[in-house]
């Protein structure tokens, strides 16, 4: 079970790094979200294997009284999901506003946009 989780985390992180290296901000945003999911799965792995030594499964936290799955990582993930969701909303909104303002969400175009209106640094005066 832990191995499956580890593979999932690895795949999600790989995908997210690939996406984040893109020049299109939409893909970068998707990369950030994939990274968040990878993080959540890696926390889930911290509650240990849900399979007992005799092949049975551990009980979920509220229902069972014995052989519980550690509930704390689940609580952490719940918090992290909510935060991730809020950040996702903000980032997508910012993307839409940027697209309306500047007409592009490509990193190179935005950087070019930035240059003419006086963003020179002291070094290249």
């Amino acid at each position: 079970m832990t191995t499956v989780l580890a593979v999932c985390v690895a795949v999600l992180v790989t995908v997210s790094v690939y996406l984040m290296l893109s020049r299109e901000l939409k893909s970068v945003a998707m990369g950030v979200f994939a990274l968040g999911h990878g993080a959540n799965l890696s926390i889930l792995a911290m509650s240990g294997s849900p399979v007992l030594a005799d092949g049975g499964l551990r009980n979920p936290p509220i229902l069972g009284a014995v052989n519980l799955v550690d509930p704390l990582p689940q609580a952490l993930i719940l918090t992290a999901i909510v935060i991730n969701f809020a950040v996702m909303g903000f980032l997508l909104t910012l993307l839409i506003v940027t697209a309306r303002r500047t007409g592009t969400i490509n990193v190179d175009d935005l950087a070019a946009e930035d240059r003419p209106d006086g963003s020179r640094t002291g070094g290249d005066r």
Binding site: L25, L94, V97, T98, R101, T102, V107, L110, A111, E113, D114, D117, S119
Partner: peptide
């Protein structure tokens, strides 16, 4: 929401 801010916020 000026243009400069939009490009630098990321």
């Amino acid at each position: 929401r000026t243009r400069r801010q939009m490009t630098q916020a990321y």
